[in-house]
Design a protein around this nucleic acid. Structure first.
Length: 564
DNA sequence: GCCGTTTTCGGCCCGACTGTTTTCAGTCG
């Protein structure tokens, strides 16, 4: 996301948290929190958006739009500074502790002058908290445990999809095949996962016992839901009979905003929607749903794929039967970013081709690094020639054809790491930034724009350069990149490596809106990595991409035609 | 603070679990 948008989103979120501690109107709090989310998913830098356009976003009104303008100009807004002055700064950090919410923080602050996590720890150890009305020994112990947990694991850290798969693999051992489904952000295909949500038809009495055996620690345990820590991540399990499985899965899959919106729509029709079904408020009758599809039908909507359930316009589209047809895994004919042992990959070309065959692909684009990148054993002109001969040999014996490409460096000045006479002979060229990450926005943007303008560069690899949990995206104006790529017909990569997931859903959506092309590449360096394609497809679906937006759906002939 | 083919004022999703209670408040998703 845009750096400035991130900052503004954080400030709106902070405003909401402080208002909560100050015991303000909870709906005002919700308005700020919602606005923070909306700004956070904007692809365009807010500085480029007019006041009128801001207000036209559902959930942002005149007041918050004005404050956003203020932040663009002054870096903050008057009311935020004012409320900040009324609350010790450490209180907001306390909110991040498990089981500690605004009411608790407020009472501890007012009655015991607790202003920081350290103060809280001292008060709990000194048994001063149990004296408060509504608090007891268990609360004290709970606070100490929450503090210890927060110090041990950075609980606000989101997982990569691969890490999520590891946690799910662990939980799977306690569950019976065919009785459950992973819901939540995992099912929505998000690039990173906060916690693992599971819906199951198994009985809580049996499963809770087995879950205890794989849990690091149980958080809570009941007849309808249980929560626990597993491999440092939170897992929530919801129990349901199969007769209401659809309602439960819908509830546990939807983003919060999606669920709220759907329930509001049901209310408008005189129905109360929850995870057990739909109650007709006038008649008192309850409809149960074993399948999600039937709920959408009941509400008069098209079926919304899990990846779209974000309250990002999909609900109106489903009501008016205008949902797009999304790309599917079966549409993908090949992977457009893989490395071989010619550079820093572990598979030789034949192993690559066999791996491609196993995926059912008709082609793989071999994109080893160009020689300008020393660390990755890059290829120069003569190495590429030799590689070309070997590819010809391998292609005679396999159904999956290796296309000869390269991942050429976009150098600091915007030129490519290999000259045009080399690039022009390759099938498809991916251009990527691998150095000088700290350039300021305009320079970095123009650098990438010049690669987009290069007639030999077909795809921009991992366009924002982020490494999840390790390195932020470099400063780049993605709006300009997306517009320029759409104009020239250059594809932007959706790098499906779980460490990158770059570009992410918001940018894919923006590119799709501009009629641009997306290219999915796993950036595979080893045999198992080709399976990451699924992550990329899901991300593209989140970006509302159809098969026509993604060049991996082209057959080999058309792809080569497109690239030429 | 946001929003409106019932409303420019009066609403704003809904339920599970825990701890401290004896009917509920707080937190969480």
């Amino acid at each position: 996301m845009d750096v400035a948008n991130r900052r503004i989103s954080d400030q709106l979120h902070l405003m909401g948290q402080i208002l909560e501690i100050l015991d303000e109107n909870p709906f005002k709090v919700r308005a700020y929190t919602r606005a923070a989310e909306l700004i956070g998913r904007l692809a365009t830098p807010v500085a480029d958006i007019s006041l009128e356009e801001l207000e036209s976003i559902e959930g942002i009104g005149t007041a918050i739009a004005q404050k956003v303008r203020e932040m663009v100009e002054d870096g903050t807004f008057r009311e935020l500074e004012e409320v900040k002055g009324r609350v010790p700064p450490g209180l907001v950090e306390m909110l991040a502790l498990e089981g500690v919410g605004p009411k608790t923080v407020r009472v501890l602050w007012k009655k015991l002058h607790v202003e920081t996590i350290e103060d809280l720890e001292k008060a709990a150890r000194g048994h001063r908290i149990r004296a408060l009305k509504g608090f007891g020994e268990k609360k004290e112990q709970g606070f100490l445990k929450a503090i210890a947990n927060a110090r041990r694991r950075q609980s606000d850290m989101r997982m990569t999809r691969q890490e999520a798969d590891m946690v799910i693999g662990e939980v799977r051992q306690a569950m019976s095949e065919g009785t459950y489904e992973v819901a939540g952000s995992y099912r929505r295909g998000r690039s990173t996962i906060g916690d693992i949500d599971i819906v199951t038809v198994e009985s809580p009495s049996h499963l809770n016992r087995r879950l205890r055996s794989i849990a690091d620690e149980m958080i809570d345990e009941g007849e309808r839901k249980s929560s626990f820590w597993c491999r440092g991540s939170r897992v929530d399990v919801r129990y349901t009979p199969s007769s209401t499985y659809g309602s439960m899965l819908l509830y546990l899959t939807g983003a919060k905003a999606f669920n709220i919106r759907l329930r509001e729509i049901a209310l408008g029709k005189g129905w109360r929607l929850n995870e057990y079904g739909i109650r007709d408020l006038a008649r008192g009758t309850v409809h149960e749903f074993s399948r999600e599809e039937d709920i959408f039908a009941f509400l008069g909507m098209d079926i919304i794929p899990p990846e779209l359930r974000e309250d990002w316009g999909e609900i109106d589209a489903a009501l008016s039967h205008r949902l797009p047809a999304l790309i599917e895994g079966s549409h993908v004919r090949g992977d457009l970013h893989v490395h071989s042992s010619w550079s820093d990959g572990s598979m030789d070309l034949e192993a690559l081709a066999r791996a491609g065959e196993a995926c059912g692909y008709s082609y793989l684009l071999c994109t080893d690094h160009s020689s300008s990148l020393g660390v990755a054993r890059g290829l120069d002109e003569s190495a590429l020639k030799r590689q070309s001969h070997e590819i010809e040999m391998v292609n005679r014996a396999t159904s999956c054809q290796i296309l000869h490409g390269v991942e050429v460096d976009i150098l600091a000045d915007g030129t490519t790491g290999l000259p045009s006479r080399v690039l022009k002979d390759l099938d498809v060229v991916v251009g990527s930034v691998h150095s000088a990450f700290t350039q300021e926005t305009d320079l970095m943007t123009r650098r990438v724009l010049s690669a987009i303008g290069n007639e030999h560069v077909d795809i921009i690899g991992h366009p924002t350069g982020r490494l999840l949990g390790q390195r932020e995206a470099y400063a780049i104006d993605m709006q300009r990149v997306i517009e320029s790529a759409a104009e020239t017909g250059t594809a932007l990569e959706c790098n499906a490596s779980p460490y990158r997931m770059d570009i992410d859903d918001v940018h894919i959506r923006e590119a799709v809106n501009h009629g641009g092309f997306i290219s999915i590449g796993t950036d595979a360096h080893g045999p198992g990595d080709l399976a990451w394609m699924n992550y990329g497809v899901r991300l593209c679906r989140r970006g509302w991409a159809g098969p026509g937006n993604v060049i991996n759906t082209l057959n080999m002939h058309d792809l080569l035609e497109w690239a030429s």
